[in-house]
Simulated assay, not measured.
Amino acid sequence: MDLYIIRRRGIWADESEIEATNEKSLQVGREMADRLRWIRSYAVTEDDGRIGSVCIYEAEDADAIREHGRRIGAPSEEFQIVRGAVVKQPDPQPVHYG
């Protein structure tokens, strides 16, 4: 499997929408466990105030990335295979919406 970065631009209006997508992503991820694994995501505020994301997934191929995105209702057409990584500091504590 390869490591992918997926950029989803401004597809959520608020935290409740992104949380619903996260739940769906976990469900679909379990169903696709032999082809895809969600590593982490970063929610970002877009210029228009909507919420986008940068996600890291391990996947069998580009078709698995696209299928997962289609099944969770989040476009997954803007992605690249990760070429390498340099980790200088561990991630801070995860943000929890509540």
Rank of each mutant, 00 (worst) to 15 (best):
M1H: 14
M1N: 04
M1F: 11
M1W: 04
L3F: 08
L3A: 09
L3V: 12
L3E: 11
Y4N: 03
R8P: 01
R8H: 07
R9G: 02
G10T: 04
G10R: 01
G10W: 01
G10C: 04
I11H: 14
I11R: 07
I11K: 02
D14S: 12
S16R: 09
E17M: 06
E17G: 10
I18P: 00
I18N: 04
I18W: 04
I18L: 07
I18R: 14
E19A: 14
E19S: 14
A20P: 01
T21A: 14
T21H: 04
N22G: 13
K24L: 13
S25E: 02
S25A: 15
L26T: 06
L26K: 13
Q27S: 10
V28Q: 03
V28P: 06
G29P: 00
G29H: 07
R30H: 12
R30D: 11
E31G: 01
E31T: 05
E31M: 05
A33Q: 06
A33L: 03
A33M: 06
A33D: 01
D34W: 01
D34M: 00
R35V: 01
R35Y: 05
R35P: 00
R37A: 13
W38P: 00
W38F: 15
I39T: 10
R40F: 07
R40Y: 06
S41L: 03
S41T: 12
Y42E: 08
A43K: 03
A43D: 09
A43E: 04
A43N: 09
T45P: 00
T45F: 12
E46T: 15
E46N: 12
E46F: 10
D47C: 08
D48R: 09
G49P: 10
G49L: 05
R50A: 11
R50H: 13
I51V: 14
I51L: 15
G52W: 10
G52Q: 07
V54K: 00
V54N: 03
V54G: 08
V54Q: 10
V54Y: 15
C55V: 11
C55S: 13
C55Y: 01
I56E: 12
Y57F: 14
E58I: 06
A59H: 10
E60F: 08
E60C: 06
E60G: 03
D61F: 06
A62F: 06
A62Q: 11
D63C: 04
A64G: 05
A64N: 08
A64S: 15
I65V: 15
R66E: 12
E67C: 00
H68W: 15
H68P: 05
G69D: 01
R70V: 12
R71Q: 08
R71P: 04
R71C: 09
G73S: 06
A74I: 02
P75M: 04
S76K: 01
E77V: 09
E78I: 11
E78M: 02
F79P: 00
Q80H: 14
I81Y: 11
V82W: 05
V82R: 01
V82N: 01
R83A: 14
R83N: 14
R83E: 11
G84A: 14
G84P: 02
G84H: 08
A85T: 12
V87K: 02
K88I: 06
Q89P: 00
Q89D: 06
P90A: 11
P92R: 02
P92C: 04
P92L: 02
P94A: 05
P94S: 03
V95K: 09
H96S: 13
Y97P: 05
G98M: 02
G98E: 11
